[in-house]
């Protein structure tokens, strides 16, 4: 702007104020209060009849959380396994489809496919979970096909650790591969087209073009997709919560960290819920900082260093 904008500065503050008022009231104060709660002994004993605390106990709740008997590691492990089972096929097929969709020589009609691939992403995760639960249930359609082909008894998908995890991973995959495909397409479309033209003139095969040009150039966005997906995975809740009936099925082998947090919140176990929230916050904050670094680094066209 040519003019001095000082006289308008107050409007900047006025217009940005609602955001920060809402943020402070509904995010920041609750966050601080969550942290504060983590330092107190505060729970309901004897089936909710006796209120214990709040008594200040310092870092005791964190000691309890990190105590092997609490099995927090198991829940982080479950979360990671459920995430990676969905993410590996997701990134593989998204890359494949994105490179096909952007390949000018293949001339694919992509519109309908994009619409269909993205559809599961707008569907309520809880309803997706319920739908897949009914589909894979003892007398659901999957088992009716299975028994009519093999002649065996129905397979109890939700009585076995890995089949239960598999169903959750399939849902996560279906819900997110379309989104990732479209994001990667945008990234590939951002690559200078003259690079592809000269590669074609030099007689590069499509696979050479993919490995030598596309992949290196979209690496920052791949990294971004990876970490945002990891942060999303850390928050995984709806699908496993519905599938496993609040996590208890198959010895809690599909209970995620947020499901465990919900369990404490629901039973008003505020001290431990607070400590768990702080731990979750730290993990998410570290991952967010990486995202922040990656996205701001992207602008000056600097290559992100490999580890």
């Amino acid at each position: 702007m040519k003019h001095k904008s000082i006289s308008y500065a107050k409007w900047g503050y006025i217009f940005i104020a609602p955001f920060f008022v809402a943020f402070i009231l509904f995010n920041l104060i609750p966050l601080v209060s969550t942290f504060y709660n983590s330092l107190f002994e505060n729970y309901l004993a004897r089936g909710g009849l006796v209120q214990v605390g709040p008594n200040f106990i310092g870092l005791e709740n964190f000691k309890t959380m990190f105590n092997p008997e609490t099995e927090l590691g198991k829940y982080f492990g479950n979360t990671f396994v459920l995430w990676i089972l969905g993410f590996i096929p997701q990134i593989f097929f998204s890359l494949l489809f994105a490179s096909w969709f952007t390949d000018l020589r293949m001339k694919l009609k992509t519109g309908a496919y994009k619409v269909i691939f993205y559809l599961p992403n707008v569907i309520m995760a809880a309803a997706m979970g319920m739908l897949f639960y009914t589909m894979f249930a003892q007398n659901g359609p999957v088992n009716s096909i299975y028994t009519s082909i093999t002649g065996k008894d129905a397979y109890m998908f939700f009585d076995h650790k890995w089949s239960q995890r598999g169903v959750i991973a399939i849902i996560n995959f279906l819900m997110w591969y379309g989104n990732t495909t479209i994001m990667l397409m945008a990234a590939i479309n951002g690559v200078d087209p003259s690079l592809y033209e000269s590669a074609q003139i030099d007689g590069a095969t499509p696979s050479q073009t993919f490995w030598k040009i596309t992949l290196p150039l979209i690496r920052p966005i791949l990294l971004y997709v990876l970490i945002t997906s990891l942060i999303g995975g850390l928050q995984m809740y709806d699908v496993p919560q519905i599938i496993t009936k609040n996590g208890e099925q198959v010895q809690r082998t599909s209970m995620t960290v947020v499901m465990y947090l919900q369990k404490h919140l629901f039973s008003k176990n505020y001290g431990l819920a607070g400590a768990l929230s702080v731990i979750l916050f730290v993990v998410a904050a570290v991952l967010s900082l990486v995202v922040f670094y990656v996205t701001t680094e992207r602008e000056p066209k600097k290559k992100v260093k490999k580890g």
């Binding site: 955001f19 943020f23 509904f26 995010n27 104060i29 609750p30 966050l31 601080v32 209060s33 969550t34 504060y36 709660n37 945002t228 942060i231 850390l234 928050q235 809740y237 947020v258 947090l261 919140l265 505020y270 819920a273 607070g274 929230s277 702080v278 979750l280 916050f281 998410a284 904050a285 991952l287 967010s288 995202v291 922040f292």
Partner: peptide, 20 residues
Amino acid sequence: FILMIMMVPTQVSALGFVRQ
């Protein structure tokens, strides 16, 4: 600041939020 809080999951402040 807004960019930095973009990725913070809502669940981490759920305890304080629900009690408040």
